[in-house]
Amino acid sequence: MEAAGLHTVVEASAYFVGFRLFVRERRRLALPVLADTDRSVWIAFAAIAGAAIGAKLGYWIEDPLAAFAGFPDARRLLEGKTIVGALLGGLVGVELVKRIVGAQGSSGDAFALPLLVGIAIGRIGCYLSGLADHTYGNPSTLPWAVDFGDGIPRHPTQLYELAFLLALGLVLHARRNAFVRAGDRFRAFMVAYLAFRLFVDAIKPVPYAYPGGLSGIQLLCVAGLCYYCRDLPRLGRGLWARS
């Protein structure tokens, strides 16, 4: 199977597993905001639609020269996507729909595990896709650097992210009873993931450098972390303080 086809299969598996985990977490956690079936469908739809829009906008921000090449021909605009953009877009979509339907309370904890596992599975597909996926790191002389087919050893940043997500999953599970507010497990996942991407993307090629040499993905990470800044002390206590 070609790399592109293999990536598609792995990505589809990530979506399937993530959705099944969301259904399980919704039942297991019995969150009041998701108790009503119709309301939970709207929230899930908002998460999916917001993620799709955010993933596309994130790509446009990350590599505007490629995305808008040949404009107004829209074919290039429809190509890439980004996980960070999808996470932030899904967050915005859910919060907007909750306000529209008058839903009270946090639904985030039902999404934390599905997102973590789904992204981890997806990164396996990214790694197997090699150069075509554009998720590899900069050239490296480290002993674990990987040649993705062009003769240049690079940081296998997909595997770095996979290892990080596995470690984060273990921490969130171990500290599952330490979070004092509904939604804090999701917030902790978002903060940890955005912080990780802010740093790991510093060893990836930058398709378009913004002021300070930051990539578009890093700027989105900063924006997301600023959104959660008031929650950081509480989340830190939940993650690291003794129970």
Rank of each mutant, 00 (worst) to 15 (best):
S106K: 09
I152S: 07
R28I: 08
L165G: 04
P114V: 14
L232W: 15
R242G: 13
G130E: 05
G85C: 04
T37Q: 06
L232N: 08
F189E: 03
Y136E: 10
G130L: 11
S13Y: 07
A202P: 01
C229D: 04
L232T: 12
G58S: 02
A67S: 13
G90C: 06
A188F: 10
C226E: 00
M190R: 00
W42F: 15
Y15I: 13
F68G: 07
I217G: 04
P32H: 01
M1N: 07
F16Y: 13
R75C: 10
Y193S: 04
G89T: 07
P32S: 02
L198N: 00
A192D: 01
G85H: 00
A120D: 02
A112C: 04
D133Y: 11
V171N: 00
H173N: 09
E161W: 03
R181Y: 08
V171H: 00
A46H: 05
L116Q: 00
A51F: 09
R242S: 14
A12H: 07
G5P: 09
P139D: 08
A182H: 03
G122C: 09
P64F: 08
A12S: 14
F148D: 09
L91A: 11
V23D: 09
G102F: 05
N138L: 15
A52P: 01
K204R: 14
F148Q: 07
A67F: 09
L77T: 12
R187I: 11
L128W: 07
I217A: 08
L219M: 11
G85R: 00
T8H: 12
L172G: 03
Y193N: 02
S243F: 15
V41Y: 12
E11H: 13
L239C: 11
F196S: 00
G54N: 01
R197E: 04
F189P: 02
Y59H: 13
F68N: 04
A209F: 08
H173G: 11
R185I: 15
L220F: 02
V94R: 02
F111G: 08
G5L: 15
A46K: 04
P233L: 13
L65T: 13
A55R: 00
R20C: 15
D147G: 11
W240H: 05
R123G: 10
L142M: 12
R24E: 13
P139M: 10
I203N: 03
A195V: 12
G5A: 14
A51S: 13
I100A: 11
P72W: 09
R187A: 15
A35S: 11
N138S: 14
G213N: 02
L172I: 06
D36W: 05
A55W: 01
Y227E: 03
G93I: 08
L96S: 04
L29P: 04
G149C: 12
I119H: 01
S129G: 14
